[in-house]
């Protein structure tokens, strides 16, 4: 018990919260960016523009089927070869965004496919152009249909930021490791604390998704 009280000292907690902030920061930026890019990629894959849709589909499939850790290495170690030197946070955000965009593209595309084709035809018959019908009628419904899946993907994103500890992103898990690396009596208290922190964030998001799902249904 004594270990727990000492482990949760103000200094350690502040250090952990600094890590938590990086986790949250990276997650929020990546969530917003990957939602936008994932939507564009998903639509592009759906509309079947010759070559482009093929290429998008191929790239999305490659990225989706690689472990995220590899993508993290590629952005942090690989990008400078293109003359571009990302900082650690930027590299992490970029890796998460690339990976999650590909995952979301697939979710959103299947959402669009699930929207009744009659909707599209009806909208076109009412004088909308293909793009208008897609943007105003089909896309919003596809998002509505896939909200639970999209949110659970976002939850995965938040959890997966912990993988970036391998390139020493100063996020929650990394800061916990630094604390228990200096005093092994804190190992269990640190595991408990970060598990609770991750749980609270992710669980809150999943509750939010359920509420949203009910409201929209």
């Amino acid at each position: 018990m004594q270990n727990f009280i000492e482990a949760y000292s103000w200094v350690n907690m502040r250090f952990l919260l600094e890590g938590l902030w990086v986790t949250v920061e990276v997650s929020i930026i990546s969530i917003i960016a990957s939602f936008i890019i994932g939507s564009i990629l998903g639509v592009l894959r759906y509309v079947k523009i010759k070559y482009l849709s093929r290429v998008v589909g191929f790239v999305v499939d490659i990225v989706r089927n690689l472990p995220l850790i590899l993508i993290i290495f590629f952005t942090y170690f690989g990008l400078p070869h293109l003359g571009f030197k990302p900082g650690i946070i930027f590299a992490a955000v970029l890796a998460m965004t690339i990976f999650e965009s590909a995952m979301l593209a697939e979710i959103i595309r299947s959402g669009i496919l699930a929207v009744d084709y009659g909707q599209m035809e009806g909208a076109r018959a009412n004088g909308m152009s293909y793009v208008q019908a897609l943007w105003h009628i089909v896309f919003p419904q596809a998002i509505k249909k896939t909200i639970p899946t999209i949110v659970s993907q976002f939850i995965s994103l938040i959890k997966d930021t912990s993988l970036a500890t391998i390139i020493v992103l100063p996020e929650l898990l990394n800061h916990a490791q630094i604390i228990y690396g200096q005093n092994s009596a804190y190992i269990i208290p640190m595991f408990v604390m970060i598990a609770v922190m991750y749980f609270i964030i992710c669980y809150a998001l999943s509750v939010l998704s359920r509420v949203l799902d009910k409201k929209l249904a």
């Binding site: 942090y76 170690f77 400078p80 070869h81 030197k85 650690i88 391998i166 020493v168």
Partner: peptide, 17 residues
Amino acid sequence: FVQVTSQTRIPLLKNGN
């Protein structure tokens, strides 16, 4: 100071980070 590990230090140097 940029934090490195034994694994990341050489790539980071060669990349100019």
